[in-house]
């Protein structure tokens, strides 16, 4: 009961802050939309068809959703570093709520905002000729949420060890962009050079973005959107399980590390 109240309160504050700062929403979806429309329109004609009846813009659309969610969920870490820098973290740490609740509340807060931003991107589907059924959207939400919570926990974990905003932001960029670029968000992951193939396969974001694409564009195992590991073609459930394992590990590490900091 105590724990739930703590999680809720921490979550509530981050949502409240986000609401005060709604312009952040506009800012954070501008970049993905630029990617979608500029790269999409610029390259679609040259790239031809990337799947059954799917052009380049439509191909990267799920990748853009994944990218938006991923980048936004890292804000959980930024928010912890920010609170520490401005002293507010002390108010939270002396309160009678567990450190685990604080870590969980921060992660869930950023995951909620990430989900919201991902949903705003979804609204652009009709503009690029992607039709989404209600069922598709309802399947996407938990996938996006899982991706957000996993990477949000990674952000919180990093924030317990990296104390300055500048250092955190540098570390975040160093991690975030390779994660996005090597996730298959912008290109099919078949027939890649070995080094790149390895990086794509060890990148947890791959297992978040691939199922999103399969849900949006079709999950036929023979479709070009599937990925294979050790010669095995993965099902959506396989991918979700991989991401969930990563996510749970991150959450546990984040909670542990949060409880151990001074």
């Amino acid at each position: 009961m105590n724990h739930l109240r703590g999680v809720y309160t921490i979550w509530y504050r981050d949502i409240l802050r986000f609401w005060h700062d709604r312009m952040r929403l506009v800012g954070s979806i501008t970049f993905p939309l630029l990617f979608l429309f500029v790269f999409g329109s610029g390259l679609s004609a040259r790239m031809g068809v990337l799947g059954p009846g799917v052009d380049f813009t439509q191909f990267i659309f799920p990748g853009i959703i994944g990218m938006t969610v991923l980048m936004s969920s890292f804000m959980a870490g930024v928010s912890v570093v920010w609170d520490r820098e401005f002293g507010f973290l002390k108010e939270v740490l002396v309160a009678p709520i567990s450190r685990a609740a604080v870590a969980a509340g921060k992660t869930l807060g950023s995951a909620t905002i990430a989900l919201l931003q991902g949903m705003v991107i979804l609204l652009f589907a009709p503009l690029i000729g992607v039709s989404l059924s209600v069922g598709t959207v309802l399947t996407l939400l938990p996938l996006m949420f899982l991706l957000a919570v996993s990477l949000g926990s990674l952000g919180v974990l990093m924030a317990t060890r990296i104390r300055s905003m500048e250092a955190f932001q540098a570390a975040m960029q160093m991690l975030m962009f390779p994660m996005v670029f090597l996730s298959g968000a912008f290109f099919p992951v078949q027939g890649l050079p070995t080094w790149m193939n390895v990086l794509v396969k060890v990148n947890p974001a791959t297992y978040g973005i691939t199922p999103i694409r399969q849900v949006v564009l079709g999950a036929d195992p023979s479709s070009p959107y599937a990925i294979s590991l050790f010669g095995q073609t993965l099902t959506i459930w396989n991918e979700v399980a991989m991401l969930a394992i990563f996510g749970i590990t991150m959450i546990l590490l984040a909670i542990w590390s949060f409880g151990n900091q001074e």
Binding site: R13, L16, R17, D83, G87, F88, K90, E91
Partner: peptide
């Protein structure tokens, strides 16, 4: 001793 408020709220 040091500030500990949420200035945005």
């Amino acid at each position: 001793q040091d500030p500990s408020l949420d200035e945005r709220l």
